[in-house]
Simulated scan of single mutants.
Amino acid sequence: MKKYLQLAVILGSGTVGALLAQWLGLPIPFLLGSMAMSATVSLTTFSRTGERLWFPARLRHVFIAVIGIMIGTTFNADALNAASDLAITLPAMVLFLAIAQIVNFGIFRRIGGFDSVTAKYAAMPGGLIEAVSLGEKAGGDVEALSLQHFVRIVLVIVSVPLLFQLFTDEIVGSAAGKTLERAAAEWQDWMLFSVLVPIGIMLGSLLKLPAGPLIGPLVLTAIFQATGVIDLNGPDMLVSVAQLVVGSALGSNFARSTPRRLLSAFSLGVLSVGATLAIASGFALLLERAVPMTFEALLISFAPGGVTEMSLVALSLGVTPVLVTTHHLFRIILTVTVAGILTGRTNHIGKG
């Protein structure tokens, strides 16, 4: 009963926060609002216990899969047509990730005072769940890693839409009413979701894909959608609920934190995200001369976080979301894969 009471409080507070954020017109309100309110309640109500709040992983994975499927529905022939451009931008992203990793490592190691292992995984520009998991295996500070990557995602999905609004005077992303829903969903679409969610999660687990609950369903849906096997229209309401559940789950991690640690994490996060976005801007300026993509499209493609919201920002700017999503998936997969290899080597050396 205690566990289910905690779950009810987390989801209840997340719902209130999501509706409030929507009323205020914030970007990606169901994710940010639920995270913020759930974190506030967890920090003020449960932090005294020092215990991690109970939130069933399966529930979170199901709704992460829903988001993955929704992104997968944006894949079409445009992805193949953009292959020549991706041949230029994806190698550039490899260099971008290397530079961002080095710069962020310096911030967390020198300014934040993290130990070298924690600093290395906190500096990873992608893969929240994977970064924390790999960092734990390598002996890093799990709480610090969870908090720092949480802060990274929040700052990116808040700052990028607000920066576009500031400099272009146009509202973008979900705050502009943009959604990934292409048409009204019918009962066949709901049936497809009920089939793709479990199969996609199973696929991600069997293939040991990074961010398996997201990438498995996404890749499965993208293949079927791009080849014309299915024509899935994802209900926007379902995506909102998914974001609410995932956001509430992330916010519940604050039950073991303190206001002082939060302030420190956000201060370091501002430095890290600011530096990373500055580097991304430099790459965008250079690449817009080589590929038929605008500076804005390249910037949101290189921004380190928020696949769904960056796709919505792309829709607002008239950019095909598939291009943005492809870059973000490449960023996450490459970052997690390299970190996994390094972690394996470190553990092997330690055992030897």
Rank of each mutant, 00 (worst) to 15 (best):
G68D: 12
L323N: 07
G274K: 11
K351G: 05
L43H: 07
T40I: 13
V239N: 03
R109M: 07
E51L: 04
S240M: 15
G135M: 07
A82Y: 13
L24D: 06
V117T: 15
L317I: 06
T15W: 05
V66C: 10
F75E: 10
P213D: 06
A185N: 09
G72I: 08
A138K: 04
I28S: 14
T15C: 13
A265M: 09
A183E: 11
T168Q: 09
I199T: 13
G269S: 11
G340H: 02
S146Q: 13
A18C: 02
D85I: 01
V16E: 05
V246R: 07
D169R: 13
G216M: 05
A18K: 04
A278S: 15
A36C: 14
I69W: 03
M293R: 11
A280M: 12
A119P: 10
L232F: 15
V219L: 15
V195G: 04
A339L: 07
A36L: 15
P29I: 04
V322H: 05
G50I: 09
A18D: 03
A18T: 04
I341S: 01
G14K: 04
V291Y: 08
G25Q: 09
N233I: 00
L220Q: 03
N76P: 10
P217A: 07
L271E: 03
F105E: 12
R182L: 13
G139V: 10
D231M: 03
V241P: 00
G140P: 06
L203S: 03
I341M: 12
V158Q: 00
A100D: 12
S264P: 00
P292D: 14
I333Q: 00
L43T: 08
L155H: 04
D231N: 13
R48W: 05
P56H: 10
L250P: 00
T335N: 01
K2Y: 13
N347K: 12
I111T: 12
T179N: 06
K3H: 14
L7A: 02
V219R: 00
K2A: 12
Q6T: 08
F55M: 13
G344K: 10
K3F: 06
P217N: 09
Q22N: 15
F30A: 06
A297Y: 08
A123I: 06
L285E: 03
L163T: 04
W23R: 13
I201M: 11
A222D: 04
S42E: 03
R256S: 11
V336R: 01
L59S: 06
M1P: 07
M310S: 06
L80I: 14
M35R: 00
